[in-house]
Amino acid sequence: MRVPFIKMHGLGNDFVVLDARDRDVPMMTNRLAAALADRKTGIGCDQLILLEPSDRADVRMRIFNADGSEVEACGNATRAIGLLLGKPAAIETLGGMLATNPVDAGVAVDMGEPRFDWDSIPLAYPLDTLAMPVGWDGLESPGAVNVGNPHVVFFVPDTAATALEQLGPLIEHDPLFPARINVNVATIVSRDEIRLRVWERGVGETRACGTGACATAVAAMRRGLVDRGTVTVRLPGGPLQIAWGADNRITMTGPATESFRGTFDPADYDA
């Protein structure tokens, strides 16, 4: 039995999408997800997305990182699924309910309300998440925020000068973060623009991270580094518009693209 898939991306953050709403697909395991995500021996992606029926929303979206771990949220993938659905839709995720709406600039996603309590990140022990008194080899005093998944945000003079490939995995696996953590390094360009690089847990450095852009914008607004409202967050893959409204909800707007469609034989993967 060959299984159809759709390859999509949001600003270079790429996904293999399996649609199980009206057809059978193999039972997804961490091992199979990692095998399909492998760029040398599989289809290749940052995240594998499994769409399932939902009794609470238009669709249930499950998200598996490239290492096979299942995670709560992915902003870029949500835009991609919003594009695939082609209409305003409610999407159920482990991180909560999300709403998508097609717009001229791509897809707008209501990402819900950010959480700042230490045990909502989660952290291993109580800390003030506005600017935590911790550091790793020059990266210091990060903010922490959960936007469906956990993030720490470091503000630095120049993102390009940060050794993210060394520090990212060190911070991701630090015992301070019992669920691991996504690591963001950001530079404030102006009162309405931020430059950002992201080390994504279970993936590595990625060209774009929607939840990272949301977390970084909110962390910068909390500190007064940018104006509350809408900011442009520029990632290596391109820009996203992030708004944090007076109702405490975050809206992310940006493009998504379908790359190609294909099929695979599950028997090719010993999973």
Rank of each mutant, 00 (worst) to 15 (best):
R2C: 10
P4Y: 13
I6E: 10
I6K: 12
K7L: 07
G10L: 01
D19V: 07
A20Q: 12
A20L: 11
A20N: 14
D22P: 02
R23V: 04
R23T: 10
V25H: 09
V25R: 08
M27N: 12
T29F: 08
R31K: 11
A33M: 01
A34K: 14
R39W: 14
K40P: 00
T41N: 01
G44R: 08
L48D: 00
E52A: 11
P53R: 14
V59F: 11
R60N: 07
F64G: 00
N65S: 12
N65V: 06
E72L: 04
N76Q: 10
N76W: 08
T78V: 10
R79Y: 06
A80I: 02
I81Y: 12
L83I: 10
K87E: 11
A89Y: 08
A89I: 13
T93W: 06
L98E: 00
P102G: 15
P102E: 08
A105E: 14
V107L: 06
A108E: 15
M111E: 09
R115Y: 06
D117I: 02
W118F: 13
W118L: 11
S120Q: 15
I121F: 03
P122A: 15
Y125R: 15
A131I: 08
V134H: 03
V134R: 02
V134D: 02
G135I: 14
D137E: 15
P142I: 14
G143S: 15
G143E: 01
A144D: 03
V145T: 02
N146C: 12
N146M: 11
P150R: 00
H151W: 05
H151S: 06
V152C: 13
T159L: 07
A160S: 15
P169I: 04
L170Y: 04
H173G: 13
P175R: 07
L176R: 08
F177Y: 12
F177S: 01
R180L: 14
I181T: 13
N182E: 12
V183K: 10
A186W: 01
D192G: 04
D192C: 05
D192W: 06
R195S: 07
L196E: 04
V198K: 00
V203S: 01
T206H: 05
G212Q: 05
C214G: 00
T216N: 15
T216C: 13
V218F: 15
A219R: 01
M221T: 08
M221D: 08
M221N: 10
L225F: 15
V226P: 00
D227Q: 13
G229E: 13
G229R: 14
R234A: 09
P236G: 03
P236A: 02
L240Q: 00
Q241P: 04
W244Y: 14
D247T: 07
D247P: 07
R249E: 07
R249P: 00
I250G: 00
I250C: 00
G254I: 02
T257L: 11
F260N: 04
G262Y: 15
G262W: 11
A267E: 15
A267W: 02
A267F: 09
